[in-house]
């Protein structure tokens, strides 16, 4: 495994690089720039950075005004505040208006860790996914975050980009092409398919290795774009393997699992086991301890894989 990097660190670096290439990029933060890493952009481009203080609703509205005037605002804070605290502003001033605002949230999921449930966004994908016009992206690692930031900067329209706090291993091979809306088949397999997003992609790859030693051949797909879903590849996986397991560091309600279940049940019904946070709030602890306690482990994924396979008709 190569060097670990947090997706938020990759975001900060990508912003600086893009800032040099695209003078319409401006960045807003709500007093968390050192944590979200937008401080790197602030240092390089102080006149294009706006610290909005602790007022996320106002930040989203201001970003909408900048976008309406032709700028490309990246608005950052923690996931709970970006989506929950400022929901009506995101809905009415950004999604409904289809303005070119990039909402980039860090500190999402259970791996926020020690800060506990108040700061662990486990419903943010669901909240953003139901908004018309909103694209939802969850990169798997640092390198993919860099690609995603670059891609959304060049895309016209509102985007929610979900990032995390801890340093995570690189799991996507270097040079693997990244395209918005196009899922990545990382490993072929015929017995079942793991459909994973964000930092759980690494877990799925690990689980597929464990299964291999038990004679089970699992495919692994990285669903970095949760909306719009890559319908073609997902249906292809359902047809080919006949058993699916979704994996996400998010509630099993309304996120990747929900989205996949909606698509598959309407088009090509096969068993789906959703692995994620089971309709509960999180708690304090180290990211590793929390992932283990809430079932986001490679071992647990192998169990889910077998359960899904047993349900095949």
């Amino acid at each position: 495994m190569t060097e670990k990097i947090a997706t938020r660190d990759a975001y900060g670096q990508a912003l600086v690089e893009l800032g040099h290439r695209m003078d319409k990029i401006v960045v807003l933060d709500a007093d968390l720039s050192k944590s979200t890493k937008t401080a790197l952009f602030a240092e390089e481009f102080p006149l294009r950075f706006f610290n909005m203080g602790i007022s996320e609703a106002d930040m989203m509205g201001t970003a909408a005004g900048l976008a309406a005037s032709g700028f490309i605002p990246f608005a950052s804070t923690f996931g709970v505040f970006a989506t929950g605290r400022a929901y009506d502003q995101v809905r009415n001033s950004i999604a409904y208006t289809k303005l070119n605002v990039k909402i980039v949230a860090t500190h999402t999921g259970i791996t926020v860790g020690e800060d506990g449930a108040s700061h662990q966004a486990l419903e943010d994908i669901a909240l953003m996914r139901v908004l018309p016009n909103m694209m939802v992206i969850v990169p798997a690692d640092g390198r993919q975050t860099f690609q995603a930031v670059e891609a959304i900067a060049g895309y016209e329209g509102p985007v929610y980009l979900r990032l995390g706090r801890p340093r995570v291993p690189q799991v996507i091979p270097e040079g693997f092409p990244f395209e918005l809306g196009r899922a990545q088949l990382l490993k072929e397999g015929k017995d079942l398919a793991f459909l994973a997003t964000g930092i759980t992609v690494g877990l799925a790859l690990e689980a597929s290795q464990l299964l291999k030693s038990q004679g089970i051949n699992a495919a692994v797909v990285n669903i970095h774009t949760i909306k719009p879903l890559d319908k073609d590849l997902l249906l292809q996986m359902a047809e080919k393997t006949g058993a699916l397991v979704t994996v996400e560091e998010h509630s099993v309600i309304g996120g990747l699992g929900g989205a996949v279940a909606e698509l598959i049940s309407e088009n090509y019904p096969v068993p789906i086991i959703r692995v994620g946070i089971n309709d509960t709030f999180g708690e304090s602890g180290s990211p590793e301890a929390l992932l283990k306690k809430y079932g986001l482990t490679a071992e647990n994924l192998t169990t889910a894989a077998k359960t899904s396979m047993q349900k095949k008709r």
Binding site: A57, D58, M60, G61, G65, L66, F71
Partner: peptide, 13 residues
């Protein structure tokens, strides 16, 4: 309650 924030963004632009 949202218009003044948006106006600020336009003024900053």
């Amino acid at each position: 309650g949202q218009g003044l924030s948006v106006a600020n963004g336009m003024a900053l632009s």
